[in-house]
Design a protein around this nucleic acid. Structure first.
Lengths: 336, 336
DNA sequence: CTGAAAGCGCTTACAG
DNA sequence: CTGAAAGCGCTTACAG
């Protein structure tokens, strides 16, 4: 049944030219209803599907969006990937996935290769700070190639790249203020600061809340650590063993917070009685920890939806704001 | 700098024909060293990259592998996706990601579209039982289109589809036996059975261990539940509230086990003192729970490696075994 | 070993 | 509104 079959076979069967078939295929309004009906019938009869590569070559671009993701093993990126793939499917677009793994060099390689792939668009979702070279590559793709590029989770609007981000500074400021008021004592910050654009934003929220409360930032209470579990565990274990005093922790990710919880428990301390902790991201497991984690929510769905709309409406896009800020809901659970 | 540039520009600059350039590009051994050197120099000078779509059209297939994944939000699939993408990159292949989300209909749609995409290969990784139609679609792609297809995590070797799976039956039998010996009392099974090929295998391991120990399987101790946290939480919450007695739980996934732990803690019970629990999959967070989760390991890396070798060596593949079984290491931590 | 030429399967000006 | 024809950028028999 799956013989090779082309637009010409459809044309023959419908009794029209291949040009007409092509026009029906691409939904051009010029074709008469009669022709359209004949072509559609022929397509259905033959079970024809246009060769996407040939279409891509002729049209000069594929139906593929590249999603460049910081670390797919982190829950937030996994959810985001899932929702974006689902959304793209509605537009008939496919998703090419690249896991960056925090390497600017890998990113550069991928972007270089992207040129010859004639992508439909690029979406980059990472919390890492990008190198100037990579930012340059991205924005040149917009200008020179008219290629839709979107940044998620990091603000590149200053470079002309449309960005969809959470207002993490505000979110963290809010929860640190909450920790200060509720628990009184010193609040530590646990999370990546250098090298992470999102991390830096979150840390600024922490600094802001301290300043607003008239408190000084203590260096021994700022633990710059990678975003995953082991880093959270290790940082807190060390702080505890060094006898550093703190009443609460604001973590830069849920994974960090969860790793921290393990370290706190390992010392026989109670949460939130001895130490309170707040995460950010609302990873699925965070609700099922003991204690359940107080955190800031995320909505991969609404990001995907925003992306979809903007991808679908290239006209409106020209006058769309370069920066879209989403606010995170504060999710209070048992850990703080 | 990024003007459109083709093989002809390279040919002109190198002083050879476009055919020679093409031959150098595809690494054909016929070209003389001199020609090759000239072409390579011209390519480097111009920063030329061949148009992948044109190559795809001419060669009849792209450099893209489609990865169809059950649920990217589950840790095992996220790790697998990451490792596979990394491995493919070494072969110059790109990864097209589709999240199946346990829908056979979605799978059918994706497979239907795949024909017109002229993929380089298909990898399906899901624990779901596939519909006969979808299995038929997959195996026809191997036969009719010579398309490499691999199944990961579910055995489709009976249908001529090369499969790479863990020996989950053996793994679960081992840990259930361990639970029986260590804690004496009744062991419950928590996990998807119907609709999940992998789940069914795991459950058979449970049954086997009970039988080997001369115990009867009690229906009230078998909780058929979806693979994620909420299902684990809810199943155990209910069993506990109904007063069902059990000393240990074997879960069909780490997420289920972690959800179960939350439910056990919610009742004020202790792990493993009151109830012991074993998961399967070794999701990253499982080591950072309180208590840390005893589970069966997985190695996305070794699966990706196996896949890579088999994708890279199409000749050897013809005589390769259709079924590759990997064993899971038992990881004993605090929960049992 | 190399080049001229045909062609992969579509789309799109160009005429009509 | 429709068709004949050129062409997207490569690869690959076919001659030489």
């Amino acid at each position: 049944m799956t013989k090779k079959m082309g637009i010409l076979d459809v044309a023959r069967r419908a009794g029209v030219s291949s040009a007409s078939v092509s026009r029906v295929l691409s939904g051009q309004p010029v074709v008469s209803e009669e022709t359209q009906a004949k072509v559609l019938a022929a397509i259905a009869d033959l079970g024809f599907r246009p060769n996407q590569i040939a279409q891509g070559l002729r049209r000069g671009r594929t139906t593929t969006i590249a999603l460049l993701v910081g670390d797919i093993e982190q829950g937030v990126y996994a959810s985001l990937t899932k929702e974006i793939q689902l959304a793209l499917e509605k537009l008939g677009l496919d998703l090419l996935l690249y896991n960056l793994g925090h390497s600017q060099e890998r990113l550069a390689n991928i972007l270089a290769r992207a040129d010859s792939m004639h992508l439909h668009g690029i979406v980059i979702a990472t919390s890492d700070t990008l190198s100037p070279e990579n930012i340059g590559l991205l924005s040149s793709k917009i200008e020179e190639q008219q290629l839709p590029v979107f940044a998620i989770g990091l603000s590149l609007h200053d470079y002309g790249i449309p960005s969809i981000v959470y207002d993490d500074r505000e979110a963290v400021a809010r929860s640190v203020d909450f920790l200060l008021r509720t628990y009184g004592g010193p609040v530590a910050y646990l999370g990546r600061i250098g090298g992470s654009a999102a991390g830096a934003e979150r840390f600024r929220g922490y600094e802001g809340a301290l300043a607003a409360a008239g408190m000084r930032k203590a260096p021994e209470l700022v633990w710059d650590a990678a975003f995953r579990y082991p880093a959270g565990f290790e940082s807190v274990r060390r702080a505890l063993s060094e006898g550093i005093k703190f009443r609460a922790i604001q973590a830069g990710s849920d994974e960090l917070a969860l790793g921290a919880i393990a370290a706190i428990h390992a010392q026989g301390l109670k949460i939130p009685d001895d130490i309170a902790i707040v995460g950010i991201g609302n990873v699925e497991s965070s609700a099922y920890y003991t204690p359940s984690l107080t955190t800031h929510g995320a909505s991969a769905e609404s990001i995907a939806k925003t992306l979809l709309e903007r991808l679908d409406n290239r006209e409106a896009e020209k006058s769309a704001p370069l920066l879209t800020k989403l606010s995170r809901p504060f999710i209070r659970r048992a850990s703080a």
